[in-house]
Design a protein around this nucleic acid. Structure first.
Lengths: 203, 203
DNA sequence: ACCTGAACACCGTTCAAGT
DNA sequence: ACCTGAACACCGTTCAAGT
């Protein structure tokens, strides 16, 4: 839809429009490369207008990444609640939800963990970013209480889950887990190894 | 050291100098962002000179990433040969060698798997990129023959190893696996989960 | 055969000026 | 309070011209 010629001088909600446009461009290109000037062009404002709402491009990227972590936490929480089975089944459901999130939002996912914002403590150590991590911890604690998951420090186990899911997501996005090199369904196999490493031997 | 004033008009080995300079800049910044013009500046040539050796920046990045995969394969092979113990010990040694490679070459590692070259079949599906993967497969096959690793399709197990190591490497580079959030030593814990998921129950 | 310098079309960012 | 347009210092890439 072309922008109307009677566009007012004041946009009204440019901050939200910039964020939404940038996220859309992110997943169009499946990578964290987009141009602030093109965002402004699509929003129908001058290339300088976004600077009234964000101090610079890095601030916009950080804001978007935090929104991504919110969405990831919601996806994991939904999968955890939807699976009213034992903790191991819930953990598997969360694993698939995590992978689906990455496949559905490739550019957003790469931005959340990419070098552009890597090591930024305001992002990765924020409560919003850790929210997704806490969902995994909660299910692992439940599994230990149920006797389905080995009695080990949950944070170490959560780290293993996160690393496995993060690696699987990125290798899939890179096209590295194709069937002919890695087996029939590499993702299923990898999740099985993870679950067997967490489950009690008598489980 | 300043460039000598008697620098000849013809550089001599500009192709190799460009690659080496770019790799050095990559790991200085711990990210895959560097400028072709700055590479040329450091090499003491005009900004157009590199175009006589690489068609564009993407070709240089691909070349560098392939060199990175060569080095990663060498590191894994060295760890595998150095550990003349059982296959599980060799696998753990390879895991630590993988993580060390990422910590030592953060920018190079991110380039090898980053969005800049993501999904490029000439890179990730090349024999050079798959060489590192084959080292893991060899050790897993040995472990199955020794009865230390569960009899499952090795390619699925190798995918699980790779995903776990890739995820651990990147989360560590992002500063996400710090002790206070994730436990005393998240890496040790994650590798333990991986090994327990691969090892035979009677092992 | 290899390199330079000017040129082109971009980009992020700033700032005086407009509404 | 919010937005524009010109400006600045960059970048990747091209190409005629130099050695």
């Amino acid at each position: 839809m072309p922008p109307p010629d009677d566009r007012p001088y004041h946009h009204g909600d440019l901050r939200r429009t910039v964020i939404d446009t940038a996220i859309a461009m992110l997943d169009e290109r499946a990578g964290p490369q987009f141009t602030l000037r093109e965002v402004a062009r699509r929003a129908g404002v001058s290339h300088a207008a976004p600077y009234k709402h964000f101090p610079d491009k890095a601030a916009l990227l950080t804001e978007i990444a935090l929104i991504g972590f919110d969405r990831l936490r919601d996806a994991l929480r939904g999968a955890s609640l939807g699976a009213n089975a034992d903790a191991l089944a819930a953990l598997t459901a969360m694993g698939w939800a995590y992978l689906t999130f990455g496949q559905t939002n490739p550019g957003l996912y790469r931005l959340m963990f990419g070098a552009e914002l890597g090591g930024n403590p305001d992002l990765h150590l924020s409560d919003r970013a850790m929210g997704a991590f806490d969902e995994v911890i909660a299910v692992l604690e439940r599994g230990q209480a149920e006797g389905l998951i080995r009695a080990r420090p949950v944070r170490g186990q959560a780290g293993a889950c996160w690393a496995q899911l993060h690696g699987l997501t990125l290798l899939t996005l890179d096209g590295l887990l194709i069937a002919e090199k890695v087996g029939e369904c590499a993702i299923t196999a990898a999740l099985a190894v993870l679950v067997e490493g967490l489950a009690t031997r008598e489980g």
